[in-house]
Write a protein that binds this DNA or RNA. Structure first.
Length: 296
DNA sequence: AGTAATCCCTGGCAGC
DNA sequence: TGCTGCCAGGGATTAC
């Protein structure tokens, strides 16, 4: 599932390729992916626009064009790749039967390819999304500023506004379990299920602890653990469990470095205890009962 | 207002 | 082998 490190990996792989490119044609093959405004208004609006920049906020990718802002959220299985007319399509585009990793670098549109931005010159940006949880939004620059769309998002872990006092404030009036708070995008933006579990292990906090019960020291550990774990994921090119690929169609490498996620029953890398899996708010949580004791 | 449950969706997989 | 049912989960929506 693409979280901040995966989205940022895609952004870095795509930004230099698409900057200053002109959108020649917009293909929307599954209308429900396009939320705002109606799908039929996309092609006339975006044709002829130049992509000025590709930014990221939380798990959102942001295409800036001359007159518009295009927001892309990859949901669970969204893939955003660059299609180069000079490269051949790889017919073996599929999940590896043993490792589960994507093997192809470039592929032709298939039944899961829902959006394609054809660029002047013949290259393209392709959006593929098996579970169709991803969403695209289109705003004029003015509407985007007025919408305050990103105001609801929490602290940006790599941003200058990621400060201890602001982090601490966001615990006020929050009484839910800490795992659920980490998944709340209005708390810190960009953390998903994998990195939430990894963060809690790093900070040695049990996922079911109530946010209000954390000591100042534990909150401080979390404050530093979040960017540390995200940065590690980014350095390793993102985590590929099933569907994540970068802009070039390549799998990430961080799955080899996960401490707890997906490792229930295996031994803790730190203390050799058997790791556990529980369910919190319909989300699986993985942790070490010895390193992350329930009592804190 | 804060928290939790429900729903969307497909492919992979266990079990028969 | 093919069918059934379950599981994965981000975030919008709904319920409390």
């Amino acid at each position: 599932m693409p979280e901040l490190p995966e989205v940022e990996t895609i952004r870095r792989g795509l930004v230099e390729k698409v900057r200053n490119q002109v959108i020649a044609e917009v293909e929307i093959r599954l209308k429900k992916i396009v939320l705002h405004p109606e799908a039929r208004r996309w092609a006339p609006a975006l044709c002829g626009e130049t992509i000025l920049d590709l930014r990221r906020r939380g798990k959102y990718l942001i295409f800036d064009t001359n007159h518009f802002v295009v927001l892309v959220h990859l949901g669970m299985t969204g893939q955003l790749t660059y299609w180069d007319r000079e490269c051949r399509n790889d017919a073996k585009f599929q999940v590896h039967p043993v490792t589960g990793l994507q093997k192809a670098r470039q592929h032709a549109p298939d039944k899961h390819t829902h959006v394609r931005l054809n660029l002047a010159g013949g290259n393209a940006i392709q959006y593929r999304d098996i579970r169709q949880f991803g969403k695209w939004r289109l705003y004029s620059r003015k509407d985007f500023e007025r919408s305050g769309f990103f105001d609801r998002l929490g602290l940006e872990p790599f941003g200058p506004e990621y400060r201890w006092q602001d982090f601490l404030c966001r615990f006020e009036r929050r009484s839910l379990r800490i795992k659920s708070l980490l998944l709340d995008q209005s708390f810190v933006a960009g953390v998903g299920n994998i990195y939430a579990d990894e963060t809690l292990f790093e900070a040695r906090v049990h996922p079911e602890r109530l946010a209000s019960s954390l000591t100042l020291g534990e909150k401080r550990k979390l404050f530093f653990a979040i960017p540390k774990v995200l940065r590690r994921g980014l350095r390793n090119g993102g985590t590929t469990l099933q569907d994540f690929i970068n802009a070039d169609g390549e799998s990430g490498g961080n799955q080899a470095y996960l401490r707890v996620y997906g490792r229930a029953g295996e031994k803790c890398r730190r203390c050799r205890s058997a790791l556990l899996r529980i369910v919190i708010n319909q989300r699986s949580s993985h942790f070490c009962p010895h390193c992350q004791p329930e009592g804190g």
